[in-house]
C-alpha cells in the first residue's frame, strides 16, 4: 500500500476558506439556506465551513446531518451491512435552499441516496453539492458538484482518504494505492 499526500493542512485551510467565500457569494446571509452534512464523513467538513462562515459574521446558520444508509442502492448486494448513523434535521426544508456537504465525491451513489432521503424533510427550493475532493472520471451516475475543493484524477482501485485533526493530529488528504498496482 502506497500512501501519498494529496493536500497538506495549509492547502486544506486555503481551500475551505475559498469554499466558504463561494457559499457566501451565492447564499448571502444564509437566511433561506440549510447546510446538510452527509454522515459520516461530511460532518467535519460542515463543522469547519460553519466556523469559517461565523468568522465572517454570518450568524444563525441552519444546519443538519443526514444519514443515507436506509436509502442506499446496494442494500442486499453487499457482503456486510453498513452501520447507520444519526440523522439530525430540526428544520423543515420546504422551499429552503439546501447545500449537501461531503468530503469525497466518487461514484455519486451516496449523493443519489441523499437526494432520495432529503425529501422526507420537505421539498427544498433547490439542492447544491459541495465536496472537498472531486474524484472526477469515476462517476457512475450523472451527478456533479457545484462547489469543488480540489479535483483529483484517480483510478477505481485507489482510495482518497481525508483525515482531520481530531483523528490524525492534523488535517491531511491522502491518495492510497494498493501495493500490487504500483
Amino acid at each position: 500500500m502506497i500512501k501519498r499526500e494529496l493536500l497538506s493542512e495549509e492547502q486544506i485551510s486555503i481551500i475551505l476558506n475559498r469554499l466558504a467565500c463561494q457559499l457566501v457569494e451565492n447564499h448571502g446571509d444564509f437566511s433561506e439556506t440549510v447546510l446538510i452534512g452527509l454522515q459520516p464523513r461530511g460532518v467535519p467538513v460542515l463543522r469547519r465551513l460553519v466556523e469559517l462562515l461565523e468568522k465572517q459574521g454570518i450568524a444563525n446558520i441552519r444546519q443538519g446531518l443526514l444519514d443515507i444508509t436506509f436509502y442506499r442502492d446496494d442494500f442486499r448486494r453487499r457482503d456486510s451491512p453498513l452501520e447507520p448513523n444519526r440523522t439530525r434535521i430540526d428544520v423543515l426544508l420546504e422551499n429552503k435552499r439546501v447545500v449537501f456537504v461531503d468530503d469525497v465525491l466518487f461514484t455519486g451513489r451516496s449523493v443519489r441516496a441523499a437526494l432520495d432521503a432529503i425529501h422526507s424533510f420537505g421539498r427544498p427550493k433547490d439542492i447544491e453539492l459541495l465536496v472537498l475532493i472531486d474524484r472526477r472520471f469515476s462517476r457512475e451516475l450523472p451527478i456533479q458538484p457545484d462547489y469543488t475543493g480540489k479535483r483529483v484524477d484517480s483510478i477505481a482501485s485507489e482510495r482518497v482518504l481525508v483525515k482531520w485533526k481530531e483523528e490524525e493530529g492534523h488535517n491531511i488528504v491522502y491518495l492510497i494505492r494498493p501495493q500490487d498496482e504500483q
Binding site: F70, P84, R86, T87, L92, G122
Partner: peptide, 23 residues
C-alpha cells in the same frame, strides 16, 4: 438497539418511511 435508535428518528420525521426493504 443501536439500529432501532436510527429508526426511532425515522418514524418521527415529517415523512416516516425509508425505501430499504422495497424489494
Amino acid at each position: 438497539f443501536k439500529t432501532a435508535d436510527q429508526f426511532k428518528e425515522v418514524i418521527n420525521r415529517p415523512i416516516r418511511k425509508v425505501p430499504s426493504l422495497r424489494d
